[in-house]
Amino acid sequence: MVKLTIDEREITVEEGATILDAAKLAGIKIPTLCYHKRLNPIGSCRMCVVEIEGLPNPMTACTTPVAEGIKVVTNSERLQRMRRETLKLMLVNHPLDCPVCDKGGECSLQDLVYEFEIETAEYRAEKKEREAIYATPLIRYWPDRCIMCLRCVAACRDIKALGAIDIVGSGFGAGISPVNKEKCESCGECIKVCPTGALTENLSRYKGRTWMVNRVKTTCAYCGCGCQLELNVMNNRVIGITTKDDDEVNRGSLCVKGRFGYEFIGSEERLTKPLIKRDGKFHEAAWDEALDLVAERLTAIKTAAGSDAIAGLSSARCTNEENYLMQKFLRAVIGTNNIDHCARL
């Protein structure tokens, strides 16, 4: 264990912890932007600078491991000036287009600019065009909005172990680029961690602002893993999926299906009425008529050939409860163990 002081408070933490970890433990807030708890510290944003007594240079709290006896100051005139200047630099290429940005309302940059009361983009530099190409058509990259925090790159590499995207170019012209496009699984891990609106979902652009949607927690229905997600619902339609870092099972990660495969819910092509096949063609029917027919046929088959002549195949698109009822129906009502599920195939 290591003992240190942060803002005059004594803290004991495990060896190897960073100053940021220690501050968190003590409930001291240090501003961050590129830091993300699921990623190895990146150190690109320089917002978490702190002073250590006796050392002339500020250091970033997220990348500096604690050391015995150090005295850390997280807030001073100099540190606040540095943070403000850094934020002002960020606004050199980031447009203040929050009114048309999908991330508006839950953007870390917006929050910080607000917190530090930065009213204008004071500094200027000649714009360098950066290419807006991306690894997957499901995601749109907005180079102007990208502040190069590199969270997306770290997520793709550290969480997904894919490395589909990376920083390309140098200096002000550097951008995010699909360096290994073929490796991209369209999982959207990058979009999940992007603190700004630089990565947006191509399916749901301009469908609704963050504060207009109702987030409904549910379990992903695509496979048996049980990933937790939130349906973003507006006017009784799902317009997007979000996840939370603290959720058990997937801790915010999803695969391409869970993250982007939600449009079927409101699809025009979905069946909303039962169909009965007559003379090789499907005809719409009333629920009573359809259910009567099923009951009648199942009873007939059971009487003629026994329970085991019937089998049930359930669906992964259904909830656990629905699947439970299905197997109960086959076992208790029909009397067979012939029950299976598409996710097992």
Partner: peptide
């Protein structure tokens, strides 16, 4: 600026300014 790796805000944008 032309040698800046682009991996931190201050150097990437600041030297350009």
């Amino acid at each position: 600026q032309s040698e800046s790796c682009g991996k931190c805000f201050t150097c990437r944008v600041g030297t350009m300014v």
